[in-house]
């Protein structure tokens, strides 16, 4: 049954957030390697929609509508009654189904297994990609030097 401690707060937010923007190929290949797939029923079948993205004037002021992004969501329930929700960027129904199943499993005894087989390696891959980009950006940082001109 669902572990109430894991069901609330930051841990759940963290894994759902990780999956939302994770590259689909990377996430699915990790997920496909997990042998045990629980059976489930849809509470809400995968559905493609949009979310209106907001920005702030001057980066810090009042909100304004910037434009929309595509989002796919679904909800499902495992046979033991655990409910999983999936929200992922883009339009992939297989990915959102995997996200909701992982969300549900993370509230069960399988949590540790899913964490170590899917979420942890996925987080490492994403972190590496980000660091590689940051390293390339760092190489384009301007190092100024001052040329001394004039007599003194």
């Amino acid at each position: 049954m669902a572990d109430d401690m894991k069901n609330t707060g930051n841990a759940r937010k963290e894994w759902l957030s990780l999956m939302a923007s994770a590259p689909e190929a990377a996430m699915m290949s990790l997920w496909n390697a997990v042998a045990d797939r629980p059976s489930f029923e849809w509470l809400r079948a995968p559905e493609v929609g949009g979310a209106m993205v907001r920005g702030r004037m001057g980066g810090s002021g009042a909100p304004f509508n910037l434009g929309e992004m595509t989002v796919t969501r679904c909800s499902l329930v495992l046979t033991d009654g655990t409910v999983g929700h999936g929200y992922v960027q883009g339009r992939s129904k297989p990915k959102v189904e995997a996200a909701a199943l992982i969300d549900a499993l993370m509230q069960t005894d399988a949590a540790e297994h899913v964490q170590s087989q899917v979420l942890d390696p996925l987080a490492v891959q994403i972190r590496t990609t980000k660091q590689n980009r940051a390293a390339k950006a760092a190489a384009t940082k301007v190092e100024f030097f001052t040329m001394v001109r004039g007599e003194d």
Partner: peptide, 14 residues
């Protein structure tokens, strides 16, 4: 054609 699921929190460009 897309149903709108909602509006996001304002992005933090900082």
């Amino acid at each position: 054609t897309l149903p709108r699921f909602g509006a996001t929190l304002p992005v933090d460009t900082g």
